[in-house]
């Protein structure tokens, strides 16, 4: 054992280790009871209306339950085995992975870029409002709008046609290689306003002193950004990443509307795959297993990020 630590412990023992521990425990207990009072209403609602359904689905995923047939015998891991062997699962999983990576990467870079661009610009509030605007519209409406942008006789092809002075009739939402990137572009258009706003809110709340001090010391802008702004912004960045991962995993509305005529629509993401299993084939137990996989991964990622955040917090403070 570390001799210094040993010394500390001896010291602690002399003034009554047990007493200190008890006092600390009592303090934490008081804080906890207080915290519980603050959290109670939210916990109550979330438990009753969200967590119970989640538990119900977890139970469902181990049964053979189908709405009409009402069979609910225990099935063990069978639904999960079936998931792996479904001919659509691999593609759905691959596309979801693509979505998660893309929805973390692109809105973040685009949002940060736009935040930088609009810095100290005349009329910046108007520009920010315009960038944020798509986020306010219903995703289904956004999907319909962009469907016509990508349609064979749509806006994009017309513009490309004028550019190349040749008629272009690419079916952006019909080709296997194009459909996911095309919808991701719409997603970025729709969501980078929110990322921009969250980043700006984080930036606005940064403490002023370290930045000023660094500038006084003659640090170059990039150095300040890299060594001071970025670490201070890390918690906000992590939060944005959590939200993006969640969005990427559960993306549905856009794929539902824009992919409506893509024949392999069920492979566009895990959430779409699950929807088809549940609503079209009525294999609710099987769909529940898919949902558990999605939810489990998201929760794991969130947990990992909370751990990471705790570490970042310690570094910053």
């Amino acid at each position: 054992m570390n001799p210094l630590l040993q010394h500390d412990q001896q010291l602690l023992a002399r003034i009554g280790l047990a007493q200190i521990k008890a006092r600390e425990r009592a303090r934490q207990g008081r804080q906890f009871r207080l915290a519980l009072r603050f959290m109670a209403p939210a916990l109550l609602l979330v438990t009753a209306l969200l967590l119970l359904p989640v538990l119900y689905n977890i139970w469902l995923s181990f049964t053979q339950w189908q709405l009409f047939e009402g069979r609910d015998e225990f099935a063990g891991w069978e639904n999960y085995h079936q998931l792996w062997s479904s001919p659509y699962f691999d593609d759905a999983l691959g596309n979801t992975a693509l979505w998660v990576v893309a929805s973390v990467l692109f809105p973040l870079t685009a949002g940060l870029g736009l935040a930088l661009l609009f810095r100290q610009m005349p009329g910046q509030e108007w520009f920010k409002s315009i960038i944020f605007l798509p986020r306010i519209l219903a995703p289904t409406a956004v999907g319909v709008m962009w469907y016509y942008v990508y349609a064979p006789q749509g806006m994009l092809n017309q513009m490309l046609g004028q550019f190349t002075s040749m008629p272009v009739e690419t079916g952006w939402l019909f080709e296997e290689q194009l459909v996911t990137p095309a919808i991701i572009l719409t997603f970025v258009w729709q969501s980078c306003g929110l990322v921009m706003v969250l980043l700006l809110l984080g930036l606005a709340a940064l403490p002023r002193d370290p930045l000023d001090a660094a500038r006084m010391d003659g640090a170059r802008p990039w150095q300040v950004f890299r060594h001071i702004t970025l670490p201070l912004l890390a918690p906000t960045l992590l939060m944005v990443v959590i939200l993006s991962v969640l969005a990427g995993f559960t993306v549905f509305d856009l794929l539902w509307v824009m992919g409506a005529n893509y024949p392999q629509q069920r492979t566009l993401s895990l959430a779409v795959f699950m929807y088809f299993e549940a609503f079209q084939k009525n294999s609710w137990a099987f769909a529940a297993a898919t949902a558990v996989v999605i939810g489990g991964v998201v929760l794991a990622v969130t947990w990992l990020q909370t751990l990471l955040q705790a570490r970042v917090d310690r570094m910053v403070r």
Binding site: F174, N261, P263, Q264, Q265, R266, Q280, K281, S283
Partner: peptide, 17 residues
Amino acid sequence: PTALQGEMVAEFNRFML
């Protein structure tokens, strides 16, 4: 059979495209 409906019709669509 209803369980086949959606997946099968998607294949017909794939052919038409």
